[in-house]
Design a protein around this nucleic acid. Structure first.
Lengths: 236, 236
DNA sequence: CGGGCGCTTGAGTTAAATCAACACAAGTGG
DNA sequence: CCACTTGTGTTGATTTAACTCAAGCGCCCG
């Protein structure tokens, strides 16, 4: 049988989740449909209860950045000056719980929910900082390995032959998330497969053969000693 | 109480930063001293009242990402699971106002302040998303032009001959903020100068000769019309 | 005034992008 | 049911933007 690896706290709505859960109506969204667009007035923020969404921003000339993938427990739709600052689309069928925007602005209305929202916002800041390390510091193989690892850590299932991760997004989404091209992402997947670190059941289903080796790849330590690394400039 | 930290090494100041945390209303920090380190327990968040701080994270192997530069009005130090997730250092002498962490967690204690903190957190999310576009989508000249423009928009002074921007951070900081090397940043500054878009009074003082042209550089539209662009593939 | 650090510039290298086929599965319609 | 289209992913060849290594410059501080 399987066991979820992601027993982590979804601290976003830990204490209040039960209260929230009873209150408002669910909202359902079909795969590939949009929840909101950049520039839309923010009427609600949304707690994702089931499914996966994709947050994106695009430049005038069409270049696209995937800002984040939203999984159950995540909150999406925080406003900037009252407006949505990303597009949000469903990658799978999605069930959401809307929270009225006014709750954000009036802390006295529902203090516990307000604190939960602040907590969710801080978690998002933290997640974005990890994402910065990927985009700014890592090379392509490290980015892809880090991506697979983070998906496994948060959303993987333990199977007999290793952690199993389903990737609801396409290669192009992964590429735009990591600041790479689709071709480079594909080559990195292939390299990891040929190294025996992962196996692929179709493009969207990844089995992690060795989490340790994946973690090493994520830090660029995949080549144990092809040549001596001599780094006199590094501070002690 | 004035905090005098002579310069450099973290272990020496770990305890000091805990003392800082208990200090009353206004807090001063000398240039090049640390406010906190990644992994420190969060006792306070800080409103920057004067000066500029730098938020950084480092990978095991020393690669560094500058997450953000904190200017007056910004709030720094939001916790993730109770811990600081970046280092924070003063680039200039800094004056701060500490806010006890418990205010984050108890929304009822001071609802207005709590709402302001949530607002600051959402602003930071928004700013980070802009940063993602830079890191993930833009090439080196666009990154540097975008950086100078954003500094000018937020912190520039209007002078007779154009907007004047002081850059308290060094080229290496800018490089680590943009995911480039120092050399590439320097070359991009030089290219903008030779193009007449900016002028430099020393490395840290930039005069923006033409904000429009800078904005075009930031979007990669620096070449106005060398010849007609014929793009049949672009959607209408 | 001299020394050092931060910045700039140059030459050569490389990692990732680009351009271009090709493979494969899923869906569609004849 | 099978041919055909379409979308998505993989692989290969080539180009290029940015990195690396190395030297030189200039400003600031002692």
């Amino acid at each position: 049988m399987y066991v979820t690896l992601s027993g982590e706290h979804r601290s976003a709505f830990r204490s209040t989740s039960r209260d929230i859960a009873t209150a408002p109506p669910h909202l359902k969204l079909a795969a590939n449909s949009a929840l909101y667009f950049e520039g839309d007035e923010v009427s609600h923020v949304y707690i994702i209860e089931d499914g996966v969404v994709r947050l994106t921003r695009v430049l005038e000339d069409g270049r696209r950045q995937v800002i984040a993938f939203g999984y159950p427990g995540d909150i999406v739709g925080f406003p900037a000056r009252g407006l949505h600052n990303t597009d949000c689309d469903a990658l799978t069928p999605v069930r959401l719980r809307p929270i009225r925007r006014c709750v954000l602005e009036d802390g006295a209305q529902d203090p516990d929910l307000h604190a939960a929202l602040l907590d969710a916002a801080m978690d998002e800041i933290s997640a974005m900082q990890d994402h910065f390390m990927m985009l700014g510091c890592k090379n392509a193989p490290e980015k892809v390995a880090s991506f697979i690892k983070s998906m496994a850590d948060r959303h993987g299932m333990m199977a007999a032959d290793g952690a199993n991760v389903h990737l609801p997004m396409g290669r192009a989404d992964i590429a735009d998330f990591l600041g790479l091209t689709m071709e480079t992402v594909s080559r990195c997947f292939t390299a990891l497969r040929k190294d025996g670190v992962i196996r692929l059941n179709g493009a969207q289903s990844v089995v992690i053969v060795s989490m340790e080796r994946l973690a090493r790849h994520a830090l660029g330590q995949n080549t144990p000693a092809p040549r001596e690394r001599h780094c006199p400039t590094l501070a002690a």
